[in-house]
């Protein structure tokens, strides 16, 4: 078979020079002047869900996953890291809500809300994002309870807001399923104890033991011990 290409010597020297000079010019052009100015882009509100659906070309799961990764890395722009405090949390919530609408099975947006964006050093924004987790929990309590449990922990320890933590813990307990671990349902007992609501805490433990939902012997023993401890504590308070 003949070689389809002729030898290099057939290429005129001028063409080789033109090629070399062009490459050098391109490299010089790249390093020209000062480095480009860095403009940090603010997080704008998302387009409508309907438009996102059209742009997804019928595969909303992929769009949701790609947009989630984009949103997650939004705080890192051109090598500069934004603090979460600089993010617009109203827009952020709208994005997360849209992503959940595009892919309702995904846990990623709520994970990001409860584990990443809740680490903001601004209590107003922290409360906003925890409230978002709380609102979204009711759409699918069976799968979304871990994120609300995390929100309850943050409300209790980071915000030191026990009534808020109790609200979240009670929501989990009220929507408890058999697949949910017992500790998630017991969270409200410990918060009630810290709030001094010993009678209510006792009632809840008693209710759990009577209902028969607790079958593990070590769990039953733990709850009985806790009940006795609460009764003793209540007795001391009443004296």
């Amino acid at each position: 078979m003949n070689n389809p290409q002729r030898s290099l010597r057939f290429v005129p020297t001028k063409v080789i020079w033109l090629f070399a000079v062009s490459v050098i010019l391109q490299i010089i052009w790249h390093f020209r002047g000062t480095s480009p100015e860095i403009h940090i882009q603010p997080l704008n509100p998302p387009p409508s869900v309907e438009l996102l659906r059209v742009l997804s070309l019928g595969d909303t799961v992929v769009s949701a996953k790609i947009l989630m990764l984009w949103l997650q890395s939004f705080d890192s722009q051109r090598g500069h890291f934004l603090s979460y405090k600089q993010l617009n949390y109203i827009a952020l919530q709208a994005w997360l809500e849209h992503l959940l609408q595009l892919d309702p099975h995904s846990q990623y947006p709520l994970f990001a809300a409860s584990h990443l964006y809740s680490n903001v050093s601004d209590s107003v924004k922290q409360r906003q994002i925890l409230e978002f987790v709380y609102q979204q929990f009711f759409a699918d309590p069976h799968h979304r309870w871990p994120w609300l449990a995390q929100a309850a922990v943050l409300a209790k320890h980071r915000l030191k807001d026990l009534p808020l933590a109790l609200k979240y813990a009670q929501a989990i307990a009220n929507h408890a399923t058999s697949s949910m671990p017992l500790w998630a349902q017991e969270m409200q007992v410990f918060i009630l104890e810290e709030l001094g609501e010993l009678e209510q805490a006792r009632l809840i433990i008693g209710g759990m033991l009577v209902s028969g939902q607790v079958t593990d012997p070590s769990e039953i023993k733990f709850l009985n011990d806790k009940l006795q401890q609460l009764e003793k504590k209540a007795g001391e308070v009443n004296k």
Binding site: D59, V61, V62, K65, I66, M68, L69, Q72, S73, S106, Q107, Y108, F111, A112
Partner: peptide, 16 residues
């Protein structure tokens, strides 16, 4: 890049 649901993110991306 993905922190959780890595396999889900990968399979959906690759499929698309």
């Amino acid at each position: 890049v993905a922190i959780i649901e890595t396999q889900a993110v990968q399979s959906s991306w690759l499929a698309a």
